[in-house]
Nucleic acid binder design. Structure first.
Length: 146
DNA sequence: GCCAACGTTGGC
DNA sequence: GCCAACGTTGGC
């Protein structure tokens, strides 16, 4: 079981919008970066990730679940670009800010910190659980193992 | 709004 | 296959 992080500018696509999309979810479209695409190709249905608001907010705000493996991104005519489908699973009662993440010794190796431009990235299990706790969310619930 | 870091493109 | 030019991301 792997864990992930998905970035979005909230004025383009927010966690609120993701929640409004409900159980059937949406495709995580618009990624035009090979590294990010390759991470999506590695995702399996049922895996969980964080939803991160970039630019405005700059915080992890919720948890999402992969509900469809990588397939063609219909917003591109180029067959190289693929995406997974996601649905919202839970809010973080207290969003965990980038500032708080950077200030935490246990999170200093997060890709969010070391490669700030990558929009889809892996998160370690310990990092995932740590951020859930910081945000007031039971990690087991976030991981779907509760 | 600026700009550093990074990725991509295309000429050679 | 190198690298300069350009475009984009995202923190500040």
């Amino acid at each position: 079981m792997a864990f992930w992080l998905f970035k979005s500018e909230p004025h383009k696509w927010s966690f609120e919008a993701q929640k409004a999309a409900g159980e059937k979810g949406t495709q995580w479209d618009g990624v035009r970066n090979y590294q990010a695409r390759n991470f999506m190709r590695a995702m399996k249905v049922g895996e969980r990730g964080f939803f991160y608001h970039s630019n405005e907010g700059k915080a992890v705000v919720g948890v999402v679940e992969v509900i469809a493996e990588a397939h063609h991104d219909t917003t591109s005519e180029d067959p190289r670009w693929e995406c997974v489908d996601l649905k919202a699973v839970a809010d973080l009662p207290r969003p965990v800010t980038l500032e708080a993440i950077k200030a935490d010794e246990a999170l200093k190796d997060m890709v969010l910190v070391t490669n700030s431009r990558l929009s889809v990235q892996p998160v370690g299990e310990a990092e995932f659980a740590h951020i859930c706790r910081m945000g007031g969310l039971d990690p087991k619930r976030a991981m779907g193992t509760a």
